[in-house]
Computed example of a mutant assay.
Amino acid sequence: MTPTKILYVDDEAMALKYFERLVSPLAPVLTAGSVEEGRAVLLAHGADVAVLVCDQRMPGERGNELLRHAREYYPGIVRMLTTAYSELGDAIEAINTGEIYRYINKPWELESLRADLKNALELAVLRSERDSLMRDRLLAQQSRLLANRLAALLMVGSAVYADGHEQALHRYAEAARVVGGAEPMVDWNRWDHADLLQAEAQRGAAIAAHLRDALQALGPRGEVGDALSALARSIGGEVSGDGVLVANATVFTALLVSPAGETPTAPQCAWLAWLLWQGGHARVTPAQGGWMVRPAAPDALREDWLADAMERLGKNPV
């Protein structure tokens, strides 16, 4: 939702009333009588505020303190300082430090004030549209990264334990979707395409090595009870009835959501290794106190099961 409101902060009650009367035909106005009250209004209504106008000279904290706070916590808000000519130095300092879009001299000239605020509102709309496009772009990049990681796990699984690897990856993706609640952690300002591809390739090699070691330690497939005990030891769960209760959901998603450039660990690979060992004959369901892993018959996989899993994970990131 695009923000539309103007917040004006001034310790003079008459100034607040005068501003609201002058500006309300242009946009809805919120007011506050101090920097502290301004922070409270931003906390409650920050998503609705397009423009913040703040007087500089007030008892206690000065206006530029609130503008600095808004820059840090509400960067999309267009910030403006209003001050008397004698305090012009404060306005210049605020501009130079990036705290404000512009300053407005007191006393106000009505048409100039409205023109400045109209420009600020238009800038706020542009920022909101830009931020929305950036969010969509990041979501698309994260969805692609999820899909790439799932595809890479299928290739790694096939290489290290071909028997039942597709069923194992199907159940891995299913568990990640059931658990949900996170997305791949990537600093997109740091990674360019080539560097990220290299990091992901190295990540796949490390996962393969951990899987081989884990599968060697697990040995031949055994009875269901032994398999559940091995799973509990591997991922920190507890055997409970006909399954394993796991409190920490990250064991089911770590290989999909851990930060780019982070070297995978053996514990992060333990759940996938166990699924490969068991040919994917298990299913994760919500349970009191965490998540329950129980033995389950294999599903009949369609030819496009991987594409379907990628699409489902993209719509509901793990």
Rank of each mutant, 00 (worst) to 15 (best):
R135K: 14
A162Q: 14
L42I: 09
Q141R: 13
D10H: 04
W274N: 02
V318S: 09
R102T: 15
Y172L: 09
S86V: 14
N148M: 07
T250L: 04
I100C: 01
V53P: 00
R221F: 02
G33L: 06
G204I: 10
Q288W: 09
L123A: 14
L67D: 00
G280E: 11
D163N: 10
A84I: 06
E109S: 09
P75D: 10
A40Q: 14
E174H: 08
A176D: 05
S143I: 00
L42F: 08
D136Q: 14
A230L: 00
L88K: 12
G279Y: 04
M80H: 05
L126C: 05
N96D: 09
N248L: 05
G222Y: 04
L255A: 06
A44W: 09
M185S: 14
P184V: 09
Y8W: 06
D90T: 11
E37Y: 04
A84S: 14
V284D: 00
L169D: 01
L133H: 13
W305Y: 15
G261T: 13
Y172P: 04
V239H: 07
I104T: 02
T263K: 13
E166R: 12
L66H: 05
E238A: 03
V29S: 01
L255C: 03
A208M: 06
A91W: 08
M80Q: 10
A70G: 04
A247R: 14
E311C: 03
Y101L: 03
R71A: 15
A173R: 04
